[in-house]
Design a protein around this nucleic acid. Structure first.
Length: 105
DNA sequence: CAACTGACGATAG
DNA sequence: CCTATCGCCAGTT
């Protein structure tokens, strides 16, 4: 089940770091082009709380907050800040890129 | 049980 | 460079 694998991948993200949906999907073994990211979205959006997942560590490939402002984006940024994750002026995760830092390009 | 949904990502225009 | 569209697919309603 990809869901569980994705959940595990998200849980595998170390504190103080972030991962992109694409990287999570890839780590989960779903190289569906870029579609794997959609799976991460679905799962996170629906089960994050239930699965006790660190959804706030999941950002875009650019390292920026994926959610729209007012939907929890500010909250996520605050949580990351507490995890010791530095942010750039663009509100992107600076050096917190997980998996060889390929997330922040 | 069937349909909708989506916090993305890449490619094409 | 920015906008638009396609791909993907299982959890949620």
């Amino acid at each position: 089940m990809l869901t569980l694998r994705i959940l595990e991948a998200i849980r595998a993200v170390p504190c103080g770091k972030v991962a992109s949906y694409g990287q999570i999907a890839l780590a989960a073994g779903h190289p569906r082009g870029a579609g794997g990211a959609r799976d991460v979205v679905r799962i996170l959006a629906s089960m994050s709380e239930k699965q006790n997942l660190p959804w706030w560590r999941i950002v875009r490939k650019d390292g920026s907050i994926a959610l729209s402002p007012g939907s929890g984006a500010e909250l996520q940024r605050a949580l990351l800040a507490q995890e010791n994750v530095p942010f750039t002026e663009d509100k992107k995760a600076a050096d917190s890129a997980f998996w060889n830092g390929q997330t922040a390009k």
